[in-house]
Design a protein around this nucleic acid. Sequence first.
DNA 1: AGCGAGTTTGACAATCATTATCAATAAGGA
DNA 2: TCCTTATTGATAATGATTGTCAAACTCGCT
Lengths: 133, 133
Amino acid sequence: MKRNTWQREAVREALDAREGFVSAQGLHAGLRDAGSPIGLATVYRALADLAVEGEADSLQSPEGESLYRACSTGHHHHLICRNCGLTIEIEADAVERWAQQVASRNGFTQAQHVVDVFGLCDACSLREAPGTT
Amino acid sequence: MKRNTWQREAVREALDAREGFVSAQGLHAGLRDAGSPIGLATVYRALADLAVEGEADSLQSPEGESLYRACSTGHHHHLICRNCGLTIEIEADAVERWAQQVASRNGFTQAQHVVDVFGLCDACSLREAPGTT
DNA sequence: AGCGAGTTTGACAATCATTATCAATAAGGA
DNA sequence: TCCTTATTGATAATGATTGTCAAACTCGCT
């Protein structure tokens, strides 16, 4: 049976408090800073659990780290500013259907998909001159 | 200046010979099996180069490994069997437009996107009994 | 409240992919 | 051919993540 520990709560809350995606390491560091004596391994486990239970969303940063984010229920995707980290949840029924369709049309089953858009948000767009490299 | 070495060629060829995505480790193992004395670090470097030059496509497996694949020119996405690695290139003008639209509607610029579908291919679907664990 | 079984924790070791190091090698121009 | 210098490769280093296992804690039960 799944037990209720303050550690698990702490992770859930810390995740809720964040704006964008965090790495397990980062979240752990934050908790430690806040005075929590929680262990690193525990944070990893809690995040993995949350992801499985659908309370957290996870994705891989381009560098290969696993990032997590508090997740409203349901399946959705993200629009992420690659400069400041701002994250916007996007729904995409059309894309869901498309993915499903592409899969089955090719004989694939149990389709999952990775659909994320990275870019520069409004604010960051202004700073990075769109000129030459 | 960029020099021409048989190692670089070997990697390019080995990549071309593959059906789906391979990890650097996997490709290196294959080359070694084929009798090549090529080094692991070299394979990593060659693959990274090929990816930069646009001759290879790279993505992250759900487990966090970097996978590579010989890439015809142009932008496209993939339908990947998570069991046997079979990969099908898919074009998706609709998705391209959608991504672009979502981005600009939210004030984002320079949008890139990650769109990949993982599933079980026809053949593998049959083996994995869709029943209980 | 007290007990007991079994889950969870956490410090640390182990693993695994990837990158850095650096002396030796080899490519390509002169 | 000779020289300059990019490239190679064995290995160490890094860094995230997972496994280990005794001790601590939860929760149901009495």
